Simulated assay, not measured.
Amino acid sequence: MCKNVAIMPMKKNVDSAMQKSCKPAMLGRMWQASRRSLNLDHAPAHHFACSQWQSSPHPSTTYLIYRWLLFISVISTGIASFACQHLPRQYDGPIRELNYMKWFIYFTNWGYLLITLQSALALAVVIRYRSQKCNSTYEEDEIPIPLGRRVRTPLLCRAYWLSHNIATDLAFVISLVYWTLVHDPRIHEINAINVLVHGGNSLVMVIELLVTSHPVRAAHALYSAGAGLAYGVFSAFYWAVGGTDRIGLPAIYPVLDWNKPGSAFGFVSLCAVVMVFAHALATCVAAVRMRVALRLRARPHADRLALPTH
Rank of each mutant, 00 (worst) to 15 (best):
E139D: 15
L294K: 13
G248A: 04
L170A: 13
R130Q: 13
C50E: 10
S55G: 15
R29G: 05
A302E: 15
S224Y: 06
Y63C: 04
S34T: 09
Q90D: 14
A124K: 06
A293S: 06
I75R: 12
S213C: 13
V241Q: 00
H198A: 14
H220Q: 04
V216A: 05
F265P: 01
L210D: 03
G243E: 02
R295N: 07
R67H: 04
Y63L: 11
A45L: 05
S56M: 09
P88Q: 07
C50Y: 04
P261D: 13
H164I: 01
H188I: 06
H301G: 07
L181K: 13
S235Y: 03
W179S: 02
A251W: 02
W53E: 08
L229E: 13
L196W: 13
V292E: 02
T61H: 04
A293H: 02
M18G: 01
Q118A: 09
H164A: 14
A227G: 10
L64A: 15
C134S: 08
P215Q: 09
P59A: 08
R35A: 10
I247F: 07
C22R: 10
V255D: 05
H310E: 10
L156Y: 02
C2Y: 08
V273I: 14
G228V: 06
S119T: 14
H58T: 11
Y100T: 13
Q132A: 10
D245E: 00
T283E: 04
S73D: 09
L38R: 03
I193K: 00
R29L: 15
I143Y: 05
P215I: 15
L181Y: 10
L117G: 14
V285P: 05
V276T: 12
S37M: 10
N191F: 08
S175K: 00
L156I: 15
A251N: 07
R297N: 07
I105Y: 03
G28T: 05
V206T: 14
S55M: 06
D169T: 14
F48D: 04
Y223K: 01
C157R: 07
D303Y: 12
V255I: 14
Y223P: 05
L176T: 14
Q85W: 02
Y238T: 03
G266Y: 06
F265E: 04
L64Q: 12
N99K: 07
L176S: 14
V274W: 01
F71L: 15
R152H: 13
D92A: 13
P185Y: 03
H164W: 13
S51Q: 12
V292H: 02
H164P: 00
G199S: 15
L162D: 07
L181A: 11
Q19D: 13
A221L: 09
N99Y: 01
A286L: 02
L98R: 01
A221G: 15
L249R: 09
A192W: 11
D15V: 09
S34E: 01
Q52I: 04
C50R: 08
P250W: 00
G266Q: 11
N135Y: 11
Q85P: 02
G199L: 12
A25C: 06
A45D: 11
N99F: 02
R29M: 13
E208L: 11
H86G: 14
T244M: 00
F237K: 01
L270F: 12
A192R: 05
F234C: 04
S51V: 06
A251C: 07
I105R: 05
N191E: 01
N194G: 09
F104T: 13
P154I: 08
H164M: 06
R150A: 11
R150K: 11
I143N: 07
I174Y: 11
L176H: 03
L121N: 06
Y138H: 09
G226W: 07
